[in-house]
Design a binder for these strands. Sequence first.
DNA 1: GATGAGGTCTGTAGCGGCTACAGGGTCAAG
DNA 2: CTTGACCCTGTAGCCGCTACAGACCTCATC
Lengths: 134, 134
Amino acid sequence: MVKIGTGIGIGALGKATGVNIETIRYYERIGLLPKPDRTLAGYRQYGGEHLRRLSFIRKGRDLGFSIEAIRALLRLAEHPEQPCEDADRMTAAHLAEVERKIEELGRLRDALRGMAHCRAGTVAECRIIDALAS
Amino acid sequence: MVKIGTGIGIGALGKATGVNIETIRYYERIGLLPKPDRTLAGYRQYGGEHLRRLSFIRKGRDLGFSIEAIRALLRLAEHPEQPCEDADRMTAAHLAEVERKIEELGRLRDALRGMAHCRAGTVAECRIIDALAS
DNA sequence: GATGAGGTCTGTAGCGGCTACAGGGTCAAG
DNA sequence: CTTGACCCTGTAGCCGCTACAGACCTCATC
């Protein structure tokens, strides 16, 4: 291992953040995670800043924010003196979207519950098939 | 218009079923909807069977079934003498998946509600950014 | 018969957010 | 010196569409 400065490899970064290695490389490719230094052999070497940034991304993804939303939130986080209206607006919009999806899925669930557990016997009298075919 | 037999065009089929024209062609391409006859000019001509089948597909999609699930359900619907266990099992599995998603989104909603409506003022004290960065 | 508006055709590429290879290089331990 | 774990690049695939470009066809109107 040829070390240039101190840092961790992509595997360690992945373990530390819970992000798949391939995903980390993907984030680099789309410019979400800055390109790290490389060892002489060409291995990526990450530092604390990368770790923090990738954790941020991971948490944002876990909360369901889109990549573009996270990009915007990262830009905001880099400018602590700015007002946080934008972050608030984005979160509210995302929350509304999540609530909308919950309602939609709730309606779906009710529809599915209403037709499931068909004990008719054959497809000819099956309530499920019938619900779709009618 | 060169008519061969009687049938409706792709636009009329789309309107009748609420399915986008491009999507109809897509369904044909992936073998979900059988290839229709063509007029001499090469226009697709759909009949009642296509209409029924596409409605079935549409309803299945509205219920959130995957394309592959719908393919299986269509095969079932074509064999009315068979037992409908499979349809029941698929619906139950899908219902469970929908319920799982609802719970997951509920957790997401709670997390977002807990951090939203940040009135801190600047990003430096923003609860939203903080939640992601910490 | 010319024109224009709308419908339709094929083929291909793009979306989001990864994920999965193939085919190679690198490194440390035994 | 070999083994096995790690890492590299580049590309293609997943799902379910959607959006073109560039052509062709049909019909109503003048």
